[in-house]
Amino acid sequence: MNDVRLRVNGVARQTAVPDHESLLTTLRERLGLPGSKNACEQGECGSCSVLMDSELVCSCLVLTAGADGRAIETVESLGADGVLHPVQQAFVDAGAVQCGFCTPGLIVAAYALLRENPEPSDLEVREALSGNLCRCTGYGTILAAVQRASRAMYRR
């Protein structure tokens, strides 16, 4: 076991993890944050996307013990009590949520994109979200949601 200190959603957390545990497992099973989803365990679907030191990564491919001291932001960090983050609100309003299993990962990826590129072209949105699989929507409403969020956040 390895004693690991992480800053998760702004809160210092300390936990003991086995050598081979992924950050996704740690978040879901030890830290009570099941928002990040496990759909492939090999970085092919993006459902487990989180920000690690502000960079978008698949948490299933992060070795928790190797991430000691890092800052992690998950979908649970977005929005506040009773108020959705504009990206979250846009996903609701645009009908970009169906089964919702891919949604947390997509929201984190869209949030990361808009922070870097406030007014992305459609193609830039597509390239930025190409690592997040959705099986329900066919992506049209997701593209619309990201553009809606961009307008809400930056083009008032």
Partner: peptide, 8 residues
């Protein structure tokens, strides 16, 4: 891969 993979 994807942006996530390219970041890591």
């Amino acid at each position: 891969g994807s942006p996530q993979i390219r970041n890591a």
